[in-house]
């Protein structure tokens, strides 16, 4: 008996809802906003991937160039070492100094390439 009354209570429950058309129009508007954000996020991810690829390539190329120039850099370091008075700080292995310089330059080049590519791609997109 009570069960039927409870069922009837809910079956007859017809609250006043806002207009279906308005609700759907609002929802479609929100969906469009979501799609816009999704498109922007996808474009940003694509730009980021390109920038990372360019940065990796730049770092690699810089590394290769400096490796090829290693001999020359080594000779220069040796001449500097000979022209300086005997200071313990300059008694490091020349190879280690040269590799450290090369690594720092490669990283700097890669970071710059990433920033430049990203800003150019963003500027192109804005235009």
């Amino acid at each position: 008996m009570d069960e039927d009354k409870i069922k009837d209570l809910f079956q007859n429950f017809q609250p006043e809802l806002s207009s279906d058309t308005l609700f759907l129009a609002g929802l479609k508007k929100h969906m469009e906003a979501v799609e816009l954000v999704k498109r922007h996020a996808a474009a940003a991810r694509r730009r980021n991937r390109i920038a990372v690829a360019v940065a990796a390539l730049s770092g690699f190329v810089t590394g290769v160039i400096f490796t090829l120039l290693m001999q020359l850099l080594g000779d220069r370091a040796a001449s500097i070492e000979f022209s300086l008075p005997s200071i313990p700080a300059f008694s490091f292995d020349r190879q280690i100094i040269a590799w450290t310089i090369m690594a720092a330059l490669s990283v700097t080049m890669a970071i710059n390439a990433y920033e430049i590519t990203l800003s150019r791609l963003s500027a192109k997109k804005t235009i």
Partner: peptide, 8 residues
């Protein structure tokens, strides 16, 4: 609205 957007 929020639930439908989450579903979407």
């Amino acid at each position: 609205q929020e639930a439908y957007i989450k579903a979407y």
